[in-house]
């Protein structure tokens, strides 16, 4: 599937939303879907848990526990891709899960249980959670997945080494010494270096849009979500 900046009514069938839909069913397919969801988004949820005050170890447990409970309590039963972004859905569900855990932990603490900050303690003076914390982690994860996708493409073409050289310049910056320096490094002509970097940037943009599109409902716009993530990390 190609990323698209316009809504596509058929898209959710092939996005990560379909993993959510599969994960709420029973059977081996559901397990595979959940595993994939876990692999893709567990790091973001884990990092968010850290930002919310969990220790590294507890954050692992939280993220892992969340996905276990997804199965046990059929947490995805009400998941509806028509309602929007996977990011929003997972964030809401995970926050709810964290709150539950903190409530239980508070009870246990009183009985000498888990040592973590309370959910309320992680909020700022206005009672807000760290600004855009989950969105920032989400953005970082989406970027990781995009770069992994880009890497895979170059690996298949046998040009992974080339991408590694170009990677620092995907941001739009040029190496010191311009294309000539890059060309020297890559033992190619300046023109070839320019072409190679141009294509790497173009492919990076495609990979990023692909990954973002995977998380959106049918009426969501890729560019809009991209702008949201940029704001979150700015």
């Amino acid at each position: 599937m190609k990323p698209s900046s316009s809504p596509n009514p058929n898209r959710f069938q092939t996005t990560r939303w379909s993993l959510v839909l599969s994960a709420r069913e029973q059977g081996p397919d559901a397990e595979v879907a959940l595993e994939e969801l876990c692999r893709r988004y567990w790091p973001a949820l884990r990092s968010f848990a850290v930002r919310m005050g969990c220790t590294s170890h507890d954050a692992d447990d939280m993220a892992q526990g969340f996905f276990i409970q997804v199965v046990e309590k059929d947490l995805f039963a009400r998941a509806d891709p028509e309602r929007g972004k996977l990011r929003t859905f997972l964030a809401t569900a995970f926050r709810r899960y964290l709150q539950d855990q903190w409530s239980k932990a508070g009870a246990r603490k009183r009985g000498g249980g888990l040592e973590i900050l309370s959910f309320d303690e992680s909020r700022d003076s206005q009672g807000n959670e760290p600004r855009n914390a989950l969105d920032q982690e989400w953005a970082a994860r989406v970027m990781e997945l995009s770069l992994e996708r880009l890497q895979e493409r170059y690996r298949q073409d046998g040009r992974l080494e080339l991408l590694q050289s170009l990677r620092p310049y995907l941001t739009g910056e040029l190496p010191e010494g311009g294309y000539a320096a890059l060309a020297d490094e890559q033992r190619m002509s300046s023109g070839a270096a320019k072409v190679a970097l141009h294509r790497a940037r173009k492919r990076f943009g495609e990979a990023l849009r692909y990954e973002v599109a995977e998380t959106l409902g049918p009426d969501e716009e890729v560019e809009s979500e991209l702008r949201h993530l940029l704001m979150a990390v700015s």
Binding site: A140, M143, S146, T171, G172, F204, R209, E223
Partner: peptide, 10 residues
């Protein structure tokens, strides 16, 4: 770096 990448990708 993350911010720049998003800006470039966008």
């Amino acid at each position: 770096d993350l911010r720049k990448l998003f800006a470039a990708g966008l």
